[in-house]
Computed example of a mutant assay.
Amino acid sequence: MYANKHYENDIKYSMQLNRFACRLLGIWPSIETESSNFENLRRILLILVCYFLLACELIPTILYVIIVEKRTRVKLKLISSVMFTTLAVLKYSSLVFTQSKVRNCLMRVRDDWQNVANAKARESMIDRARTARRLLLLCSLFMYTSGLYFRTVVPLSKGKSVNNRNITIRFLPCPSYFIFFDGQISPAYEIMFFIQFLSGFIKYTITVAICSLAALFAMHLCAQLEILMSLINDFINEPEEKNLAKRLAATVKYHTEMRNFFQLVQKTLEHTSLLEVMGCTMIVCLLGHDILTEWEDQNVIAMFSYLVLLTSIGFNIFIFCFIGEQLSEEGEKLSLTVCTLAWYRLPNAKARALILIIAMSNIPTKLKAGKFFDLSIKTFGDVVKTAVTYLNLIRKVME
């Protein structure tokens, strides 16, 4: 191990976008120094504001579905919006209550950047950090593009309508029922439009923050697995017998720390990944039904908005499954590496020491969603099939 002279720039490069997204939500923990009272107060206020904005959208929409809307077909459309907001509240709460675990993960990432095995290991970590940044940017592009379109273009394109009572109706991004005031009168309408716009921005930022943290930690783990394989190969190919004990100790220490970090990442992401995959599966199903109904009604603008939302949410599920697949593949490569080692080159005592390394390497490195199922490309295929199955079931029921 040697000190990385460029670790500050490397840490900034790997965490910069994650930090920006999480700070918007008030959930980015301080990893360098203890937080000041002002910083803690700022985070608390941001968290309260986020909850307030989410509640300002969720509660009126639920009241509208229960009290005002009587058409089953329209209710079904609104349920997907209610589910997405509820899911955002749950995911945000999970992030708020796991800040200490996120902080521990970030501190471990920082320490790994400060002390890398060699220059080749640093290049491997940079390459994986670049992949994590690209995934974050793609997720942000899909979420914010679809969200802003749904929050602005769709309601404004509807213009105004006159109901049976000869009352002019102006459309909000999410239909709402307000008990204490009339949401159609200025400036109440403009204020609620702006609040719902901000609420949507918060929901999309929550999704981006979760995907960014998952990508950062999983890709960092992939880099650590690559470095571990390099250390094991260097240990086997060490020509000087006197250096074997030192290399073996360093390899075992690195392997143990990597496994501990993997367990910490698993505990940090297990609930949010479960909410993301299972919740988005149901939302994808409902959005598919909305697209088909808008197609039947020949409403091109609404159909396009639902299609964009469907694509963005489906891509979020794919990101989780993709990073899980990448981590699983690196774990399999490690297992293959240690099982095909030229152990016969080592003295007997050192060769016997490899038994525990081989046993540890054969433990699968698979991210699990809530300890129920693995995150993999196969899981993504199962999610798509499940969503299509439920979509067909809903259409049969609605007929």
Rank of each mutant, 00 (worst) to 15 (best):
M1N: 13
A3R: 13
E8Q: 12
E8A: 12
I11R: 01
K12F: 07
Q16C: 12
E39M: 07
L41D: 13
L41M: 15
L45K: 14
Y51R: 13
T61K: 01
V65W: 11
K70C: 06
T72I: 15
R73G: 06
K75Q: 11
L76E: 08
K91H: 06
Y92I: 07
L95D: 03
Q99L: 06
K101F: 01
V109M: 01
D112H: 00
E123P: 04
S140T: 14
S146N: 04
G147W: 01
Y149F: 12
P155W: 01
K160M: 15
N164H: 06
N166M: 09
I169Q: 03
R170M: 14
P175Q: 01
P175T: 04
Y177W: 09
F180Y: 08
F181T: 01
Q184V: 06
I185F: 12
Y189N: 15
Q196H: 10
Q196P: 10
F201D: 13
I202R: 01
Y204S: 06
I206Q: 00
V208F: 02
V208G: 01
A215L: 00
L216Q: 03
L216F: 08
A218H: 09
L228A: 06
M229E: 10
P239E: 15
E241D: 12
A245Q: 15
Y254I: 07
Y254E: 13
H255V: 11
F261M: 14
T268L: 02
T268K: 00
T272I: 12
S273G: 05
L274Q: 03
V277D: 03
T293F: 11
I301C: 14
A302W: 07
L307G: 09
V308D: 08
E325K: 05
L327Q: 00
L327C: 02
E329A: 14
G331M: 12
L334C: 03
L341K: 05
A342I: 08
Y344K: 06
R345Q: 14
L346Q: 08
N362C: 15
P364I: 11
T365I: 08
F373L: 12
D374A: 08
L375H: 07
L375S: 00
D382R: 04
M398E: 10
